[in-house]
């Protein structure tokens, strides 16, 4: 398979999430317009910052006349989870030239991580072609995000009832489709259960801190159960 076909596979794997992202892009553009922000600002946010949830939070803070440092600090907190993605992907990118890693860092969003990371586990991406799959995923999402931002601004005002269409459910279904193949052993089930309970319990924490806390607790749970299981295995007498 050549690099274009690999990029195509990445884009294909991202389609459900691209559809799920459309209302958010439209909403971002229309909210920016509703707050009397220029089209240049909206486009600069989507094309340069490229950070979905942080962009929405920033709009709210701008509307509330928050100072610059608050906006930047909040952006930092909202995007913290991306450190986990980067750490998890290190093993698949460390052999790549710096230029590619710089580009991939720019495209490290929830959707691309969600679409591409499991492909390494399932064998449909590896060290030789994974970056091409990754770039195909993030470029197709980037294109959608910027086009819908512009459309949202041009539509001028809040698109009526857009948030009630439920297109975002595509993302929920996709993430479930990604998560379920992992649920084969106790440690993964443990991480899953803790993530469900904690994300719901902590959902009202500000700036998506609840998401980060729930994720860390779930990862710790999975790790501890895993360590316990392998210790147990080590203690069992070896069968020869």
């Amino acid at each position: 398979m050549n690099s274009f076909q690999n990029a195509q596979r990445g884009a294909l794997a991202s389609i459900p999430m691209i559809i799920g992202g459309i209302p958010f892009g439209l909403l971002f553009g229309s909210l920016a317009a509703a707050n009397d922000l220029s089209i240049w600002f909206a486009v600069a946010m989507s094309s340069i910052v490229f950070a979905g949830s942080a962009q929405f939070v920033a709009l709210g803070l701008i509307a509330a006349d928050a100072p610059l440092w608050v906006i930047i600090l909040t952006t930092f907190v909202v995007n913290l989870r991306h450190i986990l993605y980067a750490a998890d992907l290190l093993r698949y990118v460390r052999h790549l030239p710096l230029k590619l890693r710089l580009l991939m860092g720019f495209g490290l969003i929830d959707e691309t991580y969600a679409a591409v990371r499991p492909m390494y586990d399932m064998g449909s991406a590896d060290k030789s072609n994974g970056h091409q799959v990754y770039i195909g995923s993030f470029l197709s999402f980037y294109l959608m995000w910027n086009i819908t931002t512009i459309m949202g601004v041009l539509a001028g005002e809040f698109i009526p009832g857009l948030s009630e269409w439920g297109l975002e459910f595509a993302m929920v279904a996709t993430f479930i489709g990604i998560v379920t193949p992992y649920l084969k052993s106790t440690p993964y089930w443990g991480a899953f259960a803790v993530a469900v309970v904690c994300s719901v319990v902590f959902r009202d924490m500000p700036n998506q801190m609840g998401l980060i806390v729930a994720t860390l607790l779930a990862v710790a749970t999975g790790y501890l159960l895993d360590t316990k299981a392998s210790n147990k295995k080590a203690k069992e007498p070896a069968r020869v």
Binding site: Y85, D88, A114, V172, F175, I178, V179, A195, T215, A218
Partner: peptide, 22 residues
């Protein structure tokens, strides 16, 4: 390295669970 393999399940679940359950 061992802990990080639980990141995909944990973070994706934590993103969608509040959408589905609340």
């Amino acid at each position: 390295d061992k802990a990080l393999k639980f990141v995909p399940v944990s973070v994706l679940t934590a993103i969608i669970a509040p959408m589905a359950l609340t």
